[in-house]
C-alpha cells in the first residue's frame, strides 16, 4: 500500500509531463492571441483586436467558412466509402479480417509528404491517371484538370484520411455481438434491413468518431491544399500558417488557432452529446 504522500508525489510526477508539454504551451498559445505586435515585436498586452480582425476581414472568415465546407465534403466522402469498406472487412472470415484491415491502414505507415507527392504524380499532366485515360482512349490528350483544383484537394485528403474513418467504424462494428445481426435475420429482416435497423444505428458512435477525426485532420491540414489545390489551395490552414511562417504575427495566428480549436471542441462536444442520447 502506498502512503498518501508518495501517492501524491507520484501523481505530480506523472502529471508533470503532460502539463509541461501540453498544458503550458496551450496556455501560452491562448495568451498570445490576446497580445499585440508592435514594430515586429510581440507586446504582451490584452487586446481583442486579433479576434476583431478575424471577424471583420472576409479574407479570413470567408476562407474559414469555405474551408469548413471543404472539410465537411472530405468527411462525407470518407464516410460514404469508409462505412461500406469497414462493413465489408467486418463481414470477412476471421482469418482474413485483420490482414485486410491492415492493408487498409497501411498507408498510415507512409510519410505524409511522400503520399502527397505520390498523389501529385498520379494526378499530374504526365501522371498515371492521364496515361491510363489516354491509353484507354477515354481522352485524346493528357488533361491538367485532375490536379490543382478543389476536387483534387477533396480527393487527396479523402484518400489520405480514409483509414481514420475506417478504423473507428470497424472497431465499433467489432463490438456488435454477432447474435444481434443473427437475431435481426431470425426475426425476418433482410441483410439490407439488418444493416439499416441494427448495424447502422449501433455503428453511429464509430461513424461520428470517424467524421470528427477526418474533419479535424482536414481542418488542420495546411500542406495538402497548397500542394494539390493550385489556385483553390487557399484554405484557413494556409492563412494561419502565413501569420506564423511569413508575417511572424503570432498573436493574430494564435487567435485564428484558438478559433480552430473552439470549432473543433464545439464539434466534439456536440457529437458527445448526441451519442450519449443514443444509449449505446
Amino acid at each position: 500500500m502506498m502512503n498518501p504522500v508518495s501517492r501524491i508525489s507520484l501523481f505530480v510526477l506523472v502529471a508533470l509531463v503532460p502539463s509541461v508539454f501540453v498544458l503550458l504551451p496551450t496556455i501560452a498559445f491562448v495568451a498570445n492571441s490576446f497580445f499585440a505586435v508592435e514594430n515586429g515585436q510581440i507586446v504582451p498586452t490584452f487586446t481583442l483586436s486579433n479576434y476583431a480582425a478575424f471577424l471583420q476581414q472576409p479574407e479570413y472568415w470567408g476562407v474559414f467558412v469555405n474551408t469548413l465546407g471543404l472539410c465537411l465534403q472530405v468527411s462525407i466522402i470518407c464516410l460514404v466509402f469508409g462505412l461500406p469498406v469497414a462493413w465489408f472487412i467486418w463481414r470477412l472470415p476471421e482469418r482474413n479480417r485483420y490482414p485486410m484491415l491492415f492493408v487498409v491502414i497501411l498507408p498510415l505507415f507512409m510519410s505524409y509528404v511522400v503520399k502527397l507527392f505520390a498523389f501529385r504524380s498520379i494526378l499530374g499532366l504526365n501522371g498515371f491517371l492521364n496515361q491510363l485515360l489516354v491509353a484507354s482512349h477515354l481522352i485524346d490528350k493528357p488533361q491538367m484538370a485532375f490536379l490543382f483544383s478543389r476536387d483534387a484537394i477533396v480527393l487527396t485528403q479523402a484518400s489520405m484520411f480514409f483509414p481514420y474513418m475506417v478504423l473507428p467504424i470497424f472497431l465499433n462494428l467489432e463490438r456488435i455481438p454477432h447474435s444481434l445481426t443473427q437475431a435481426s435475420s431470425d426475426l425476418g429482416a433482410s441483410a439490407g434491413m439488418t444493416f439499416r435497423e441494427v448495424v447502422l444505428p449501433l455503428t453511429m458512435p464509430g461513424v461520428v468518431a470517424g467524421l470528427v477525426f477526418v474533419f479535424i485532420m482536414s481542418l488542420g491540414d495546411y500542406i495538402t491544399p497548397q500542394m494539390v489545390g493550385g489556385m483553390m489551395g487557399h484554405t484557413f490552414g494556409r492563412v494561419v500558417w502565413s501569420q506564423f511562417g511569413v508575417t511572424f504575427n503570432w498573436p493574430l495566428g494564435a487567435s485564428f488557432g484558438v478559433v480552430l480549436v473552439l470549432v473543433c471542441a464545439a464539434l466534439v462536444g456536440a457529437v458527445g452529446m448526441t451519442s450519449r442520447q443514443q444509449r449505446i
Binding site: 435481426s184 431470425d186 425476418g188 433482410s190 435497423e197
Partner: peptide, 28 residues
C-alpha cells in the same frame, strides 16, 4: 434465417440495445 418459420431466443438474449422493449418486440 429470415425466411424460416422458426424464431430463436438467444443465449445472450441478443436484444437490440438501441430499441425499447416494445421496439424490440415489434421488430419482427
Amino acid at each position: 434465417p429470415n425466411r424460416r418459420p422458426c424464431n430463436t431466443v438467444f443465449q445472450d438474449y441478443a436484444l437490440f440495445p438501441h430499441k425499447s422493449a416494445a421496439g424490440n418486440v415489434g421488430y419482427g
